[in-house]
Amino acid sequence: MRAALATVVVAGLGAAAFWWGTEGGMALTSEAARRLDIAAAPRMLPDVPLYDQTSAKLQLSDYRGAPVVLEFIYATCPDVCLTLGTAFERLDAVLPPGVPLLSLSFDPADGLQRLGWFANRHGAEAPHWRVAGVKDPKARAALLERAGVVVIPDGVGGFVHNAGLYLIDGKGRLSRVFDPEDTKGVLDALLVIEG
């Protein structure tokens, strides 16, 4: 009897621990946890200096005042960034002119030329759609850290990262993260913001 009682108590404690550790079963992966956390409490992103494909210099904070759709890419990426680029092409066609797109490279090797490649491949035209890099390594690391972007080497010269489409609200806060192909989610969320 006490064996059964003790087992039931342990099972209850275990269930409570799992409930706590997975946000009630909603966050089994760190990616799901990150998205839930950002949606619940939008994060202020650090104001980093950027340079875009036209060599224009700007600050991330220059975008404040209107929502922005952001993605993290690297110019020589063979797979997921192509999905991201294509998603931005679709968004570029339907977004209202007041909502800019920003493709941010996390690869320190992405100079002007490489940003240009990416911009040309996807038809990105500044200032509406900027393809930009962050020169300062510390600022770049701080931005990735705050956004919860984890970049690891893929073992064959490239990178693997938790890709997504990011919605930044008019106050400069990262407020939502969507799957790389979920342009509909981005549009619906923008309607809510603008609505």
Binding site: R2, A3, V10, G14, A17, F18, G21, T29, S30
Partner: peptide
């Protein structure tokens, strides 16, 4: 002997918790 089932369950659950991808990360 009576502690065996609850101890084994506790140990198993603690292992499984740290196998959740979120907590590995």
């Amino acid at each position: 002997n009576w502690t065996a089932p609850s101890a084994l369950l506790a140990g198993t659950l603690a292992c499984v918790f740290w196998l959740v991808p979120r907590w590995i990360d």
